[in-house]
Structure formats: structure tokens, C-alpha cells
Write a protein that binds this DNA or RNA. Structure first.
Lengths: 248, 248
DNA sequence: CGCAGCCTTGACCATTATCAACGCTGGTGG
DNA sequence: CCACCAGCGTTGATAATGGTCAAGGCTGCG
């Protein structure tokens, strides 16, 4: 397979993994090329651009306001992307998992911070060199544009969630979203791993940890979900959960 | 000026206005080319793709769920872009003004609806043909990617607003945002036109019309703004307004 | 001039935030 | 190996922000 750009899971295009890393152990089965027509020279350039980096939990990938010199492509683990207000209020604008790209929304400086949640590995690129490569390769450019479209659509869904949904609807939407975006480690169908803390979930959904906790208890009590441990649960009634998420 | 892509105002790249329309009366002074290197053949293609359309207030430009066959570029007036929940709850994900592009976040079907607020004119394109042109023209593609970046960054700011700001902070942010995005019709500096209804503002900020009204009254009373008519106001203390928006 | 639609204001209510206490759990050191 | 401690999560009581319901006032158009 001669592909720099691989799809690690549905609707998640990895635009950074170099050839050596294409056969990712975890997700190799799903990986397929969406960008076969890159020239050998481009592949060499990408290889020379990329470096593999590791982050411990809590470690900073990028900091809001810093000059945006690097782009990242998560190859393992997970990260939170967030914005802060001067008084410390935090809004998590997204979680990243293996295959997700960090830096699409980035201009001269980062408009958000990002931290690893778990031990995390990523492919790091020099932004300027990467952009030069995009300009040379229309296929890579349109793949990125496609990804930006998905992120924008996801952002609009999140606006609907934050602006108009109740606490229960938010939690239900969040769980379904997570199940769809991070199916890699599902041991069983409808099993779900929550690498992030309750505080992270609260800051993503515009709630407090208490409300998150109470709402999870509510869903648990009504039999829609079952919590196996603090960080893993089971969607016992995904259909009902979807109805709740949509406000039905 | 040989430019299909013109910048109508800072950070707003018009990727659709054909040559004939480049010298827009309202904003001609600010327009400049960001995409000079399009071939004459591409210009002809764009011309043949584009058609000018008019919308009366309330008229639908696109409807959520419909096949996405058209893209739009507003050349005058304004529009609201929104998502609906089954029970009618509405979230406005953005307002569009002259020079704004509609359809960036669009895949096979529209993920949002859009309606004209005022009498509105737009340049309409066939999506498939437009995408083909993008593939042929790297400059146009990267201009679109750049625009997608800005929209994504704006979406993240809106998430912070919806998830973590108080009613007063939301209104202040909204007014400042509007002042920045729609400076065209400013008669005086810090004068501001509100083409949308209170309901629109509420549905954009995740509030009710009553809260919007009360909060505007509050800002009026504290002397930060002054309302000239229902749909136009004056930012009397932009610095203080900014502080309020940031939660200081 | 009158009406319809939108906006404002007021009174009351509810969802969620805040404050507080307690419990679980995993890691560390005795 | 067990016990303690720190950090995170849960639960409860109370409070507040913003929502709901209701009435009245502009305003612009016919």
C-alpha cells in the first residue's frame, strides 16, 4: 500500500502517518488508502517532516496563544483540546483519539490548548513544511478540506448541544458521540471507555461535575447505561439513548 | 484586477464573486485579490457556474437534510444558519453577511438550514462543478481551507460562549463580534446594525428573548451601549464591553 | 387610526450551580 | 500486607441564574 494518507476509522483521515507507521497494530484492519496518488518524492518529504513524540498524562501538546509551529496527528492515546477564560473557566472544544488531527483550525498562533489525557503518542510535523506539501499535493489538500468540513459539522452539532440541550440530552449525546468516534478499544459492542475525568466531561458539555455525576446516575437508574468501572460503561439501550439525545 | 477570489473585508474571502461583480459598490474600497493566478479558462468556468439569486426576508436558501447541490456566496443582505431539534428548539450556528460563504461545512447533504433575514442577494454555484474547479486550482483550494480554519476557530469561540459564559458575557461577545464582522454599514464608528430579531439573537446565544431583552436593558442602563432604534445601537464603551465579554 | 407583530417588563418557577460532606479507590509507605 | 492518604466521584441541601408565563407597550404598515 503506497499511502501517506490513511483512513484509520470511518470519517477520520490520518494525513500525517508516514509509510512506516501505516500498519498500526491497533487499527491496521480498518486502514485503507484515500490518497494513493502522492508521488514518491512527496512521501520522502513527509517522512523527513515527521517525528514521533510521546506525552504523559497531563502533558501539554500545544498552548493557546503560542506561535503555531507544529501540527500533530495522534497515533495512540487521547487528548483534550480546550479554551480558557481569564478567570479559569474552561471549555473543552473536543477530544482527540488515535487518527485525529490537531491543528486544522490553526493560523499563526494556536487558538486553543491541548493536553494528553492518557499516555499518548503522536506524529509531529513542522507546520510550514506541511503547508508547502499541501500546496504541492491537491489530493492531500482536498483530504484536509474534507476533514475540516467534518470538524465544522461536528462543531455545529456541539453548538446545538451547548445552546439548546438539557443536561440529560447532553450526556446522552456525548456518550453516543464517543461510542462512534472511539470504537477502537471496544471490547464488546456498545462497551465504552471514558479516558477523561468527570471534570473533563463537564467542561466539554457546559455543566458541572455534580450535574454530570447526577445525570449518569439517572441514566444508570433508568437502565439505559451500566457502569462497569468509573471509566468504562455499557450502552444497554442505545436506541433509547439516541431518543434521549434527540429530545424525543 | 484579474481576480475571482476577492477579500471583501479582513478575514473574509469571497471565493465566488465573478469578475463582473468584483467591483461591489458597497465594499469596493476594501476588495483586493488573493487569488490572481487563476487562468483565464478558470475564470470562464466560474462565470459559467455562477448565477445571481435574490431572497426575500424569511426565504429559504438551503434546508437541513436536502441533497447539497448548491453553494452560495452572499453579495448583499444577511442570513441565519441554524439547526433544529425535532421539538422545534433552534440553534443558530452563525449569521452570514455580504462576502460570507455558505456551504463550507457541507458534504452530501446540508447539515443546517439557512434563511434570508433581510432582502438578500447571493451568487449561487453548482457544488460538483465548484469542487472540480477547486481540484484544478490549488490557490482556490487553499483559500477555502484558510476560510474553513477561520470558521472552525469562530465555532470554538462560540462553544466557549455557549458552554461557559453568562447571559451578559454572551450579549457583550455577540455585539463585539457583530461589530467586527459587519462593519460595512456602520454609519459611525461603533455604530451597529442588528438585522436579526431578538428571537434570532436568543437562538444564537442559547438564551430566551426575555433574557436577551433584559440583558440589553442592563447594558443600556449601565451606559455601555445606547439603542438608537430597535435594530441599531451604539457601542458607547467598547473597552468596557470587551471586559464584560471576557469575564473581567 | 388600528392592528399585528415584536419587544419589554414583571412575577414566579425550575434547572442547574454552589457549597458541603461523605465514599470509593488506587497508590505508597510503614 | 495492610493501612492511610490524596484525589476523584457521589450524594444531599440550598441558592441563583435564567426560563416560563403573563401582561402591557412600541412601532410600522395597511
Amino acid at each position: 500500500m503506497n499511502a501517506v494518507v490513511v483512513q484509520l476509522r470511518p470519517q477520520s483521515i490520518d494525513c500525517g502517518v508516514s509509510r512506516r507507521e501505516t500498519a498500526c497494530a491497533e487499527c491496521g484492519a480498518r486502514a485503507f488508502s484515500v490518497c494513493d496518488d502522492l508521488a514518491e518524492a512527496d512521501l520522502e518529504r513527509l517522512d523527513s517532516l515527521a517525528e514521533t513524540v510521546r506525552f504523559a498524562p497531563g502533558e501539554v501538546l500545544v498552548r493557546e496563544g503560542d506561535p503555531a509551529t507544529k501540527l500533530f496527528n495522534l497515533t495512540g492515546g487521547s487528548a483534550r483540546v480546550f479554551k480558557l477564560m481569564p478567570d479559569g473557566r474552561r471549555q473543552i472544544v473536543g477530544f482527540l483519539f488515535a487518527g485525529d488531527f490537531l491543528g486544522l483550525a490553526t493560523g499563526k498562533t494556536y487558538a486553543f490548548s491541548a493536553e494528553a489525557i492518557e499516555p499518548t503518542t503522536a506524529c509531529r510535523f513542522n507546520r510550514a513544511a506541511y503547508r508547502a506539501l499541501i500546496d504541492d499535493s491537491p489530493a492531500l489538500g482536498s483530504a484536509l478540506l474534507e476533514r475540516a468540513r467534518h470538524e465544522l459539522a461536528a462543531a455545529q452539532n456541539q453548538m446545538l448541544l451547548l445552546g439548546r440541550k438539557t443536561a440529560q440530552e447532553r450526556i446522552a449525546s456525548f456518550l453516543l458521540d464517543l461510542a462512534e468516534r472511539d470504537p477502537m478499544r471496544a471490547q464488546a459492542p456498545d462497551a465504552l471507555h471514558l479516558p477523561m475525568t468527570r471534570t473533563d466531561i463537564a467542561d466539554c458539555l457546559g455543566l458541572t461535575i455534580e450535574t454530570v455525576s447526577r445525570t449518569l446516575t439517572l441514566l444508570k437508574t433508568s437502565g439505559v447505561i451500566r457502569m462497569t468501572t468509573l471509566s468504562s460503561l455499557e450502552l444497554r439501550d442505545p436506541v433509547r439513548l439516541r431518543e434521549i439525545a434527540e429530545g424525543l
